[in-house]
Amino acid sequence: MKKINSTLLLILMFLGGALIINFVMSGFSVSPGSLLWMKPGRFDGLISPYYYSILIILGINIILSVSLALLNGFTGLFTMGHAGFMAIGAYTSASVVTFLLPNAPFVIQLFCGSLAAGAFSALVGFFIGTSCLRLNGDYLGMVTLGFGEIIRIVLLNIDAVGGARGMTDIPVYMNLGSVFLLTIITILVIKRIRDGRLGRAMLAIKENEMAANMMGINPLSIKVRAFVISSFIAGVAGSFFAHSEGYLSTQTFTFTKSFEVIAMNVVGGLGSLSGAIVGAGILTVLPEGLRKLQDLTGIDIRMIIYALTMVLIMILRPQGLMGNKEWKWLSSK
């Protein structure tokens, strides 16, 4: 009982944190809208709308990055189709909210939308997982890359969700507080999975599949579970993305997005949860931060520096910035 209470306490604590963030960000407004779901209208709080939206993207990228870490870093399944799962989640949630529940209260819309997004994405993840699990290494990467693109092209050709025009008028519900809350919860969920017997089995399979077999671990079932959990979370991240932007285009979910998420994992350190977070932070903030430099110098050197930074990190710290290390609050001890 004590343990459940401490989990509840933790969630309440973060909920409090989220409310405080929203309170400050909305310029100390106490209306329920600004505290719970609306993006602040007047940014006389702390920061400009531009930085505000970067922080929201940062949260979503962290969720994506840690969900990929579960597949890529912990289970050792190299997949390149994460953007596909995110796309499924984004479009599913947007469709559920706009077509099925247009008049429901926002809590129900967001809850049902995210849940449907996660569930549908997990279902697709289950099918992709079961059908490619005899593949290893680069081959699995290739096939998942293909699946990711198939998902995108299918969405591009469904006229009901806007097709090539993109999907517009999606209700915007995510503000900084709620993204913060959901990011922290996702990180904790993944940490706890890693520290349980399932996580140990995943790591064992990554390290030595044959030996894992001899420990009575069924590698196929663990890999499918990793796929399902990871695609569920990626789907939910897609849903948050849809409801923070209010607009969806299939162009967002090309394989470059998948590679971006992989790069976050690699830069931070494959196999480290803290690394996935650090990587997401760097690869989200760096390209935006460099805009200032571009404004100052008047030369378009943003992408050059961005690319150089990545190359340098790979040369100087091939194991990633965090390597195998974890921050204390994320370590298993």
Binding site: M1, K2, K3, I4, S6, T7, V189, R192, I193, D195, G196, R197, L198, G199, R200, A201, L203, A204, A212, M215, G216, I217, I229
Partner: peptide, 25 residues
């Protein structure tokens, strides 16, 4: 952790147990 891995099939915690860190977990 190497040794703990071998208890995989004789343990019974579910995903929910892990996520909520229940007493059973």
């Amino acid at each position: 952790e190497n040794v703990m891995t071998s208890f995989y099939s004789s343990s019974h915690t579910t995903l929910a147990d892990m996520v909520f860190q229940t007493k059973k977990f």
